[in-house]
């Protein structure tokens, strides 16, 4: 579904990604883990068109998308839930969801997607008219994911959905991520610092360190990997 080949990205003279390659099969949950500043968010921002790669290709559903502007990439069914959630804080929950469906013109489909989102996140349903900025961190993350789902994605990229959220809600959100993948048929790329959790829900994982992929493999193998255990899985 998505194939990234030899991607180089830099911010001015600072190089952030030094030739990473990876591949995501349709229907999978794949995780990209790594410490602070490894380049995880940079990877997602480049795939979704917010950043331009210096070199390398990004192929989505067989077509190169590395030169498309961000709004065209969304239109192809590749949605990105950014780090820090980035909900529209002064808009209501309802308006945030409407923004998610900005490019979707099929009213019946929008209604179905809305029902689905409110079905998996009932908390949002109770707060439709509330200003999004007043939601709790966990609710904002639900809204950010819900907003992306309104864009009818085939492929969803989540950047640290567990960041700054109460442990109880993290469990809920990860359950929903699995649900979205299994019942809604959305392929998922999950970026996490919480490697333990990410490797539990994913089938395959990549480990990023200072702009390079240093390790990859089926998640259950990575969970047992001694090197990973020492650095990311808390011994």
């Amino acid at each position: 579904m998505l194939q990234v080949t030899d991607l180089h990205v830099s911010y001015g003279v600072i190089s952030a990604l030094n030739g990473i390659s990876f591949k995501i099969e349709q229907g999978a949950i794949v995780t990209l883990i790594g410490g602070n500043g490894a380049g995880k968010s940079t990877t997602l921002r480049t795939i979704s068109g917010l950043l331009r790669p210096r070199s390398g290709t990004i192929s989505f559903l067989g077509e190169d998308i590395s030169t498309l502007p961000a709004h065209r990439i969304v239109g192809r069914g590749l949605c990105h839930v950014p780090e820090g959630r980035m909900i529209f804080s002064n808009l209501t929950v309802e308006e945030n969801l409407a923004m998610g469906a900005y490019l979707q013109t099929d009213a019946a489909l929008n209604a179905r997607n809305r029902d689905y989102v409110l079905g998996i996140f009932p908390r949002l349903k109770e707060r439709l008219r509330q200003t999004a900025g007043t939601l709790s961190g966990g609710e904002q993350q639900m809204l950010a994911i819900g907003r992306a789902l309104m864009g009818n994605p085939k492929f969803l990229m989540l950047d640290e959905p567990s960041l700054g959220i109460a442990p109880r809600l993290i469990t809920t959100i990860f359950e929903k991520i699995v649900e979205i993948n299994q019942n809604h048929g959305v392929t998922i790329l999950l970026v996490e610092q919480n490697a333990k959790l990410a490797l539990e829900v994913s089938s395959y994982g990549y480990v990023l360190e200072t702009g390079r992929i240093v390790l990859e493999g089926p998640s259950k193998d990575l969970r047992a990997n001694p090197r990973l255990k020492a650095t990311y899985l808390g011994g």
């Binding site: 961000a70 709004h71 239109g75 950014p82 900005y102 490019l103």
Partner: peptide, 24 residues
């Protein structure tokens, strides 16, 4: 209107607006 919603979204967060499909 839709374009009005896009204007408000853009003024709140240009990155998120782009990720929702808004042509800035």
């Amino acid at each position: 209107t839709r374009i009005g919603l896009a204007m408000r979204a853009l003024s709140l967060n240009p990155t998120a607006a782009q990720l929702a499909g808004v042509d800035l």
